[in-house]
Design a protein around this nucleic acid. Structure first.
Lengths: 164, 164
DNA sequence: GTTCGTGCAAAAACTTTGCATTATC
DNA sequence: GATAATGCAAAGTTTTTGCACGAAC
């Protein structure tokens, strides 16, 4: 049997849970569940990396009937609104970048300026200090975005990249 | 005498130093110092808050001869390239936001989702941990961007805002 | 059957670019 | 005097929107 993880297939349990959450979210606002919304949710759940609207459109390449670009944009906005997706604004990227966040733990990002690779990290000490700093300022945090830009180990060690 | 700080006037020493730096930067690439570039530098140095390209254009409102929009965009890019300005990608802002960074210490940001106010903060513990995390991953940081989104104390305490 | 969603094309918003003229070095 | 910068308008990108038709509840 293959030992390689097949990343294109979404975890069924996670997908089912995300779909349930999406249904409740839509119903609460008297919005409707459509075949396009289901299909887009399936595609974003199958993305193992960060992606943009165009890549979702591309994921429908082989299908005879595919959602329009407008519907994809509208649906990604809904999915971000109900926290199934996380939106990222990344320097050097002209489009909004999304990440499937349902059932995944919070994490921050390191972005390689040379190859564009996005590494994830979590650090409890930083999280704690952020909360303390907010407390000190009377600021009530909802979410945060921490991005460290630099050169990843592959570019630094193997390619000898020292700057961009 | 007025005790209120007049924020629109740039600090002369800082401006002179930034201009020197800009001149050296331009010369190194065989680019030229022009009257438009000088005038735009003066305007950005006089900005006490975060701003976008359009606000710089607006700062020339009363002048008879003003740089074109294209020149403003081109110059802001140059100023960011030589670290006189810092570029920010802020969620909910459709345009690139700049901050005059010359002679100012590094800091991170808290952004109020209700009123848009940007608060600055510095925390040595967080800075140190970031470096340690990078070290652990073999990542060589160049710069970072940390933004905490939430409700500021004014909106929370005075306006009773609890969510957006 | 009513209301909401979709697809299409057009618009919007921001930024970049090509080119002839003007300014800088 | 050679080269780069400007201004203008046009084009480029990404995302949003108006509207007639079709799908969902």
């Amino acid at each position: 049997m293959p030992s390689r993880k097949i990343l294109q297939l979404p975890d069924e349990k996670t997908l089912a849970s995300a779909r349930k959450h999406f249904e409740v979210f839509l119903k609460k606002q008297e919005l409707k569940m459509t075949s396009q919304r289901v299909e887009i949710l399936q595609r974003v759940a199958g993305m193992d990396r960060h992606f943009n609207a165009d890549e979702i459109l591309e994921a429908f390449r082989r299908k005879k009937s595919k959602p329009s670009k407008a519907t994809i944009y509208r649906t990604l906005n809904l999915l971000a609104e109900c926290d199934i997706l996380e939106e990222h604004n990344i320097k050097q990227e002209s489009s909004v970048v999304y990440e499937f966040a349902w059932g995944r733990d919070h994490h921050d990002h390191m972005i390689c300026l040379s190859c564009g690779t996005i590494l994830e990290f979590v650090d409890e000490a930083i999280e704690t200090r952020q909360d303390e700093v907010c407390e000190e300022k009377g600021f009530h945090p909802t979410f945060h975005s921490q991005k460290i830009y630099g050169i990843c180990s592959v570019c630094w060690d193997e390619k000898g990249v020292r700057s961009v």
